[in-house]
Design a protein around this nucleic acid. Structure first.
Lengths: 256, 256
DNA sequence: CGCGATTTGTGCACGTCTTCACAAGCGCCT
DNA sequence: AGGCGCTTGTGAAGACGTGCACAAATCGCG
């Protein structure tokens, strides 16, 4: 289903405009801009040019300007962007004006680390409850929170307005946990389990798989190694030892 | 991400073909296919159709076929793909035929969890060494590995062929660690610190930021909430409570 | 008050990714 | 052997994202 934009319907009365529907690629970059802006604010900057903010966020300046223009931004030509204003803008668009409650399910190896990760607290979220299915883990206290049994999820969800569920269970349990989260009204899930979740329409799932990230890097390693074995067109002097098909590890080959 | 491709290095005769340079989007999906294929192999499947594999991997079947065709695939029309053969193909392309050594820097909250995460070991990697800058942490044993001081990195890198560096330090230390990794020849970095790393050309960096993932979800939550408040086209004016349990009927499909 | 320096916002062209739709190929059954 | 149903591989078209280049807008200064 294509989303239709309302070109002229932005004239909503009030200071807070209706949410524009941003391109996904832009949404994915806004948090990075926000982090860079907070850094800039702490170092005393009141305004920042698109070039400066772009390099702080690790992107191209044209892309950044286009992204910010999507949210009807308020930059000043010849000057730049007001840092504080832009922070407010982005935080509003991302829905960070309220501190959203997060439920974390699975307090194993990774769950422990996530429960103690202060990046959540400092960037707009509050871990409201920890859950696990293992009775031996229920009752344990982690970072000031007591682990509850997953069966208590409905009751806790009724008390706290859980906005986001984080799944840090083994893959085998992830789908059932997702179903239970959806059942209590959670519509956003961050999944660390290496499996595909199926959820009804209207529920957003984002997946983080650490091994996949490494495998992508491995591909590039593999490709770089195979390139150095081939004679390059520019005649670089990097011809390593040609070990035939049994490729030895290209150790510290790149020396800039 | 800043790689340039070498034109003309294609059709190379021989048993092991030269690496085709795949689209990044395809590379990012191959690990997911691989995981699904391993599941299928364990459940006894010998062949699988593109439709079946696609649904197991959570993608569209046309996309999957195009992805696999990129690597000169070996499907059989009317039958499907040979599971074992496809696993070998993908593992070769991803460079997983050798078990790559990973150096993990920063054994704080997150680093501890990563050191104990068995998904690395089971999916083609070996954590070869742990490092930290804090003398109080040096010497500690985690999952059978002793934490070394970051200053020992050059010596360890000379012994083990470190292929990938994982940074799990605070943001303030990440850039220096990255520089040191690059200095000892590491050309692939997985960065968990919330900051932008600058590295020379030829070094790949992938970033995982847990708070950013939550913020992206927060945006969609915010948008969904604002949509339910507005009367949709032909709208049934059901006013859902914030965090309500009712599933509204007019939810837009959100690309994940 | 006007001019030049600077920086934003954006039209446009280009490249990448996705999706559809269908011909080509394969195995099975008669 | 031949036909039929099923599945892959791919051309083409459309959607999406990116980057250039420049007009429009703003500030500071003489």
């Amino acid at each position: 289903m294509s989303q239709h934009r309302h070109p002229g319907a932005s004239g909503r009365a009030g200071v807070v405009p209706a949410l524009p529907d941003l391109p996904e690629a832009t949404v994915a970059r806004l948090p990075e801009y926000l982090r860079a802006l907070h850094n800039l604010a702490e170092t005393g900057h009141e305004t920042i040019s698109s070039e400066g903010l772009a390099s702080a966020a690790g992107v191209n300046s044209a892309k950044l300007r286009k992204d910010l223009s999507q949210l009807g931004s308020y930059g000043t030509r010849g000057v730049g962007y007001d840092v504080a204003l832009l922070i407010d803008q982005i935080e509003y668009v991302l829905g960070l004006t309220q501190r959203r409650a997060v439920a974390l399910v699975g307090v194993g190896n990774l769950g422990h680390a996530l429960a103690g990760y202060d990046g959540f607290a400092t960037r707009g979220f509050r871990i409201a409850a920890l859950f696990d299915a293992d009775p031996k883990r229920v009752g344990e206290e982690i970072s000031g929170l007591v682990v509850r049994h997953i069966d208590d999820l409905p009751r806790v969800a009724a008390e706290e307005a859980i906005a986001i569920g984080v799944i840090a269970t083994p893959a085998a349990a992830a789908q059932r946990v997702a179903d239970e989260l959806v059942a209590v009204g959670v519509t956003s899930i961050l999944n660390f389990a290496p499996c595909v979740l199926s959820v009804p329409d209207g529920v957003d799932v984002r997946k983080v798989d650490l091994a996949i990230e490494l495998q992508i890097l491995s591909f590039h390693e593999h490709r770089k190694a195979s390139l150095t074995r081939l004679p390059a067109t520019g005649g670089s002097t990097l011809t390593a030892l040609p070990g035939g098909l049994a490729a030895p590890d290209t150790q510290e080959a790149i020396g800039t």
